[in-house]
Design a protein around this nucleic acid. Structure first.
Lengths: 154, 154
DNA sequence: TAAATTATGTTATAACATAACAATTAGAGA
DNA sequence: TCTCTAATTGTTATGTTATAACATAATTTA
């Protein structure tokens, strides 16, 4: 796993590039999320910030910060779990308007797939046929990851 | 729209075929859902049952009934909205383990696409590569339907 | 009909999310 | 630097979605 200081740098750099104001709350919340391999609920983030920074952040602020970064595609919400993840490609200019996530139902680990690995274009065309103009689709798939599958069998 | 009595018959027939016990609550909840073009929350279903049948059903019961029919693929949960829809192919032996939904963000109408219109197989293969065994993926797409698009423009 | 299973209800609360409004802070221009 | 403005965060309260734990009722089956 990356050091917190590395994550901090990545975050500052990226926000710099995009001209985003990076406040102390935004840093705290975002670093907690970036450091986590699991997706986290807003309330789990509150607890983490309390632990790590000794600051009690109200729910509404966490949701606002998450929304702020979601608009930047730097955070994704996993709709199936009502939880959030930091984007896996936060620092690679990847706007990936169609994210795909694999979520391990055993250990909660989340893998974000690359765009190229699926063509949702077809769905988009199909949608157009019956008169839908799409916003961004997102695919979430629950499954069991290699590690957990091994644990189970052996 | 189909008559309630038609929906009733479809439901009874389908449950008969599958050997499902069809209780009075299940009928009420399911008919409300089948009659709706929009997706409905559990609590909206409670209100509807109250209105239509004069019975007050507790949340837990609604969730249990919904879960029961979800297991049969006769109800789908729209994860992006935390709402529920009756399956569009409830009576055509279609197990469609990979549902796709178009959700109009203006009028909340939901269209369920046919499986054949997209191959999620590729994602499944991709997932296998990095060691994920998938459960059923579901794709939900927000957009604007023809009608609402027309209303907006003219 | 008794036992077992399935379905539903009661009560309470957990978990997720936002509304309305107030206070604070940071940045831009005078 | 000061003030104005806009952006950010906080306070309080509440709305919405979902489930836990346990009790009761209804149905099936032996």
């Amino acid at each position: 796993m990356q050091e917190l200081s590395d994550l901090n740098e990545i975050l500052r750099k990226e926000c710099g590039n995009r001209g985003l104001r990076l406040t102390s709350k935004r840093v705290q919340i975002m670093l907690c999320l970036m450091a986590s391999k699991k997706s986290l609920s807003a309330y789990e983030l509150i607890d983490l910030c309390e632990e790590n920074y000794g600051e009690s952040i109200p729910p509404i602020t966490v949701y606002r910060v998450l929304e702020f970064f979601e608009e930047q595609n730097m955070v994704h919400k996993l709709q199936t779990m009502n939880k959030f993840v930091a984007c896996a490609h936060i620092d690679c200019q990847n706007s990936h308007p169609r994210a795909q996530f694999l979520i391990c139902s055993e250990c909660q680990k989340v893998e974000e797939l690359a765009i190229s690995s699926i063509e949702i274009d077809k769905v988009e065309q199909e949608a157009k046929k019956i008169g839908f103009v799409l916003k961004k689709p997102q695919l979430e798939m629950e499954g069991v990851c290699t590690k957990c599958a091994e644990k189970k069998s052996g």
